[in-house]
Amino acid sequence: MLSALACNMKYSSHPAAVAAGRGGNRRGGRMYAYERITDPAGFAAIEDEWRALAEACGGGGVFASHAFLLSWAETFGQGRRLAVSLLRHKGALVGALPMFHTGQARAVAAMGEGRAGMAQWLLHPDLPDADAALAALLRPDWLSFWRLEPLETPDAEALERAARRAGLAVRRKATMRACSVTTEGDFDSYLGGLKSKTRQVFRRSERKLAEMEVRDLRSDRDGRAALDAYLAASRASWKGLTGTGYGAAPEGVAFVEKLFERLGPEACYLAARQVGEVAISGRFVLVHDNMHYGMANDFNEEYADLAVGRNSIMQSVRDAFEGGAAGFDFTRCNGLVREVSTDERPLERVLIHRRGDPTLAAFFAARGLRRLRRKASGWQKGRRGVVS
């Protein structure tokens, strides 16, 4: 017997119902009401419900935690309209998908996009048909499209199934990769498994820093002093100098401070290395469900010849080993972290829109036209040249 997932009539312009297929709810009569939150105040008001749902999900993902999302909404997301989809059964929150309006090309993206991390959502584990429930959360408006990126491959697969089940058009593509370290054994054993040159650079850096009497600050021991030192290192890094580091702009500083306040000095782990009163490197890590997630690794450009950036990455991995974590997830890949990683995996992007909606096609056409114009003008890597 099939049952329907009914939605709030306020959003009747969307696909109104998704039928639970075989293996779904066979008891009948179970109805799911849909809601959408559009502002940070409304999102803050459901903190207790959100936390309860996350706990039911075994803690949920760190990037779907209320503390992370609210901190982002109040800082980087300030002034942007939220699109947080909620699913309820008999008044209880059983599903949530946090999105926001980017203000560009009518795109709606996952909250936190662009600040490391992953696109994540919450579904209660007791739901009889998870695909049907996820499908009921997918409500793109007409003349818009939803972008969820980056996604772990199993999540991308689930999202694609749900979108097709909801009768929506979907595009899925691998767009980047993530590196990680599995913390088996001890740090010295892990270090011995790296390339000889990588080990030599790290050990030489450690010797030089020891000669300079480097001092370590860490938030689980030194509290606010470690936070301030990390922000100082971020401001002095190349990301800080270009305005993209967390310590470079008021919203970045506020984001880190709010996370630190809400999660505490152990879950929002900040560390820095100082020579005298100068912060030469800093690292920003989220600790959740026995995993360490790298948010940022910054170093003072004036100390680049000491390989303090590479050293700081290795210190992050060492912290994971010494803290008994299951692993360290860089959540992204580049040449530097690839050298010290033990695992690598693809991350994907999923685009969803209503069938017949021309918005996404127009977006890709406009992007293709911009590329042609850049090519014709000799534009290369951010610079304009002369075509010979």
Rank of each mutant, 00 (worst) to 15 (best):
L87F: 02
H89R: 09
L93N: 06
A96T: 01
L97W: 02
P98K: 00
F100M: 07
F100H: 05
H101S: 11
T102S: 04
G103R: 01
A105Y: 01
A105K: 04
A107C: 13
V108P: 03
A109G: 08
A109P: 01
G112H: 12
E113L: 11
R115M: 04
A116M: 03
A116I: 05
A116G: 04
G117L: 13
M118K: 10
A119D: 05
Q120I: 09
L123W: 02
L123F: 02
P125Y: 13
L127P: 01
P128D: 15
A130W: 09
A130G: 06
D131G: 01
A132S: 14
L134Q: 13
L134I: 13
A135S: 14
A135Y: 08
A135G: 13
A135W: 06
L137F: 00
L138H: 02
L138N: 05
R139Y: 06
D141K: 00
W142S: 11
L143P: 05
L143E: 12
S144M: 05
S144Q: 06
S144E: 07
F145P: 08
W146S: 12
R147V: 03
L148C: 09
P150Q: 12
L151H: 15
D155H: 05
A156W: 02
E157S: 15
A158Y: 08
L159S: 05
L159H: 00
E160R: 14
A163C: 10
R164E: 15
R164T: 13
A166Y: 01
G167Q: 03
L168D: 14
L168W: 15
L168R: 14
R172E: 12
R172S: 15
T175P: 09
T175Y: 11
A178D: 11
A178M: 03
C179E: 15
S180C: 07
S180Y: 12
V181D: 02
T182L: 10
E184N: 08
G185T: 11
D186E: 10
S189P: 01
L191H: 06
L191G: 08
L191I: 02
L191E: 07
G193T: 01
L194R: 01
K197E: 10
T198P: 12
T198Y: 06
Q200G: 10
V201C: 12
F202R: 00
F202Q: 04
F202W: 09
E206L: 06
K208A: 07
L209I: 08
A210P: 02
E211H: 07
M212S: 07
M212T: 12
M212R: 15
E213L: 11
R215K: 13
D216F: 14
L217F: 06
R218P: 03
R218G: 09
R218L: 08
S219E: 04
D220Y: 07
